[in-house]
Computed example of a mutant assay.
Amino acid sequence: MTIVAAVPTQRRRRPELAAFLRSRRARVTPEDVGMPPGLRRRTPGLRREEVAQLSGVGVTWYTWLEQGRPINASAQVLDAVARTLRLDRPEREHLYHLAEVPYAPERSAADIAVVSPELQGILDALDPHPAVLYNARYDVLATNAMYERLFFQDERGGQGMNTGPFGIRNVLWALFTVPEATCPLVDRKRELPLMVAQLRGAYGRHVGEPTWEEFVRLLAEASAEFARLWRSGDVVPPGTRVKAFRHERVGEVRLTSVSLSVNGMPECRIVTYTPNDEESRQGLASLREVTERRIPPPAGDGIR
């Protein structure tokens, strides 16, 4: 029997990194970066020394990087090379992955929340079943009306969910920072450890990224329960299971959650909730009826 020795990951990635950089360099012309075309260019695109100059790095260092030598690259240097080579976001993430540097794009809450009309249409079409679009950190990127009715609307129909530390609604932040008596999960002690274990599974792909590290740190400071569960180190993947929720208007509903991946949105998923029994189906129907009625303002409001 022939035994094939395992090749270290770094040794496998370095040739890929070298080939990727060469291919990206070949497609950028001097005119693209405001340089004169020059004469006697034997190969298309920029020369190595030109990439180094435009990126503010040494020619020898960039040459070694493109040759796949085992040198270390910082995020700042990779960003400079990516700008010079005019890489888009997927290409930049690929560059970071090959260089084994954590990828941490700067994203605002507005960037995170942008969802295409087509994807929103899919969520809306799933009504009367609650549906939501999450990223791997449980940020709420988009919902349909029934999801809002079940989880977020307070007595007057307003938004009843606190935002996370980055100014966007986050399910984990909401569940761990509200009093246990007001938590919508019936079996909180079973569900919360599973959600934290799913978060840790995703965190493994983002170790060292400032946004993720800050999110975990702030939630651990805000919730001793989250901090305890995080220290357990448990990891589980998302999966289909029955969850029971309580709502002040219709009581308890039991729903089966199913996760669906979304093309073009890495680590994002649509989660749908379907009634697990007839009583829960009627509960959702009743919730639709009561929330569609106009809720009168409390006494004392309005013009006198």
Rank of each mutant, 00 (worst) to 15 (best):
L46T: 01
R48Y: 06
H206S: 08
N170E: 02
K189L: 09
Q10W: 07
R217W: 02
A73C: 11
R169F: 08
I303S: 13
L192P: 00
I112P: 00
L87N: 10
M195D: 05
S74T: 15
W230V: 10
A197K: 02
Q53T: 14
P210S: 05
T43A: 11
Y147P: 03
L185C: 07
R13E: 14
A19F: 05
F226C: 05
G201Q: 01
L21V: 10
S261I: 07
E155L: 11
A174Y: 04
G201M: 06
V235C: 02
S259C: 11
R269C: 09
N162K: 03
A110N: 11
R288T: 13
E148F: 00
T274S: 14
L172Q: 03
A227W: 02
A125V: 11
R246V: 10
R40A: 15
F151V: 01
E279F: 05
E191Y: 10
R188V: 10
R11S: 14
T29P: 07
L54M: 15
P8L: 08
Q198P: 03
L194I: 15
R27F: 03
S261E: 15
H97V: 03
L150D: 05
N72R: 15
T84C: 00
I270G: 08
P193V: 04
A197I: 01
R40Y: 13
